[in-house]
Design a protein around this nucleic acid. Structure first.
Lengths: 239, 239
DNA sequence: AAACTTAGCGTAACATATACGCTAAGTTTT
DNA sequence: AAAACTTAGCGTATATGTTACGCTAAGTTT
C-alpha cells in the first residue's frame, strides 16, 4: 500500500465533447449501501496524494490510469478547502471506509482536463454526463465542476483548447459547434470560417467527411508546433 | 497555541505601488543563525493553516494582522507542492524550530493581494522591495512571486485591479504610470486619457494635486458600485 | 430533381487601436 | 514677467477587427 497523505487530495474534472454536448467523466462509487444512495452514487475522479508525489504528477497518473491517454491537457484551476466540505456524514463515512484512513479534513486541489472521447480508452465504472444536466454528486463535487466550467469558458477564449476536445481530424463545423456549446451562444458560420481560414496551424488533410447526406466537409488537423511559432507574433488566440 | 495542520500552508504575495515602482512586502526572519544567512533572510508572509479554518479566511487573517487593513483584495492563484520545495536544509530546520512541528512536506496555497501602501499600517520586521530586483528568498518564494506577477499581469487587463494599488485619491497620470510599470510598456498619455474619460466609475473630486511645480492634476476616486452596475453592459474592463 | 450543407466571395456599418500634431491652462522656478 | 513643465483636451488619419447579411457554387444522399 502506498503511503497516503490524508490531508490533501487531487480531483479532476475531465471534459469531453460528444454528440454536440460538453460532458464530464464521473465515477460510480463502489460499496455504497442502498440505505444512503439518493443519487449520490457519482463522484469526480480523484485521490488522496501520496507523501512523495508532486500534485501535478499525481493528477497525471490518475488520468492516465483512467483514460489510457497520455499527454492529456491538464490545468490546475482552484483549491477547495472549506472545513465542512466532506459532508454529508454518509459520504465521509464512505471515504473513511474505502481509504482505510481516519480522514477528517481534506484540502483538495482541483484540475480540469480536456480529452478526445473518441480516442480514449475509458475504464469501467465510469460514465459521461452532460455538464448542463448533472445529478447531485458526492461532497462539493457539483460546485467544483461549476468552477471548472467557468475557468474553461474563460481560457478557451485565449488558448487553443478546443483542439484538445476535438478528434484529431475535425471539420470547421465541428469546431464551431464546440465553441457554441461551451460559450453558449450561436455564431455565424460564414464569419467563423473567415476567422479560421488565415490560421496557419489549422491544416487541411487529403481527406473528407464520409457518410453524411450532404456535401462532405474538409477535414483538418491542428499543428501545435506551427501554433507555438506564431503565438508570440499573433499575441494569442481569439475567437 | 492553535492547532496547526503541518501539511498545508498559505503564502501571500502582497503587492504595493510606491515611487513609481511595483513592490512586494517581505518579512525578515527571526532566529536565523549567522552561519546560514547568505541573503536568505527574507520570506513571504504566510503560515501553516489551522485545522478548522478555510484557507481564504486564514489568508485574510494573516493580512489583517500584518497590514492593519481589512477588505483587502485577495486572489488565490496557484499551488506549490513539489516534495523538494522546503530546501535548503537550513531553511527547513528553521521552519521546524520556529513552528515547533516536525514538518516534512508542506503544500502551500499561494495568494496575491493588492494594497494601498500609503494607507496601510505595516507592522515591524517587514520590508518593501521592488519586484524586479529581489534577493534570494527562503524556499521557493522567488518562484511564487514570479508566478504571482504573471497572474497579476494577466488579470489587470480585464479587471479594475489598479484601484486596489492606487491611493484612494489619484490622478490619471498615476494610473497610467501604474499600468506602464506592471505591463512594462510605455503608453501614450493622450490616448490613455481618451480611454479613461468615458468611464463613469472614475469620479473627479473637488480637489487637486498639491506641491508640484507644474499645473496641478485633477484628483479622482474609483466608485465600485457604479463599476459593478456597468460591468455587465461593458463586458469587462480593458485598457 | 430536391434537400441539405459545405465553402467561399463580398460588403456596409460600426467599433477600436495607435500614432501624432496642436492648443490652452495652471503651477513653480528663474 | 518669462521660462519650464505638466495637465487636459481637441482633432484626425490610418489600420484593424466585428457583426450582420446577401449571394453563388459545389458535392453528397434521398
Amino acid at each position: 500500500m502506498v503511503n497516503l497523505n490524508p490531508h490533501v487530495s487531487v480531483d479532476c474534472v475531465i471534459f469531453g465533447f460528444h454528440d454536440g454536448k460538453l460532458k464530464v467523466l464521473l465515477i460510480e462509487r463502489e460499496e455504497v449501501p442502498k440505505s444512503y444512495l439518493k443519487g449520490h452514487k457519482l463522484k469526480l475522479p480523484g485521490n488522496l496524494i501520496t507523501q512523495s508525489e508532486d500534485l501535478d504528477i499525481s493528477a497525471i497518473r490518475t488520468l492516465e490510469e483512467l483514460t489510457g491517454l497520455d499527454r492529456i491537457f491538464l490545468k490546475q484551476f482552484g483549491v477547495f478547502s472549506s472545513p465542512g466540505r466532506l459532508s454529508p456524514p454518509e459520504d465521509l463515512a464512505w471515504l473513511r471506509k474505502t481509504s482505510g484512513l481516519m480522514v477528517d479534513r481534506v484540502v483538495t486541489i482541483a484540475y480540469y482536463s480536456l480529452i478526445k472521447i473518441s480516442e480514449s480508452n475509458i475504464t469501467e465504472r465510469t460514465i459521461w454526463l452532460a455538464v448542463d444536466d448533472l445529478p447531485d454528486l458526492i461532497f462539493d463535487h457539483n460546485r467544483i465542476i461549476r468552477k471548472a466550467l467557468e475557468a474553461l469558458r474563460q481560457e478557451i477564449r485565449n488558448e487553443p483548447l478546443c483542439f484538445e476536445l476535438l478528434p484529431k481530424k475535425f471539420t470547421i463545423r465541428q469546431m464551431q459547434n464546440l465553441y457554441e456549446e461551451i460559450l453558449g451562444e450561436p455564431m455565424d458560420n460564414r464569419n467563423f470560417r473567415k476567422k479560421v481560414k488565415p490560421l496557419e496551424f489549422i491544416i487541411p488533410l487529403a481527406e473528407k467527411e464520409k457518410e453524411v447526406n450532404h456535401k462532405p466537409a474538409q477535414l483538418y488537423k491542428f499543428d501545435k508546433k506551427i501554433y507555438e511559432k506564431h503565438r508570440k507574433v499573433l499575441s494569442g488566440f481569439n475567437l
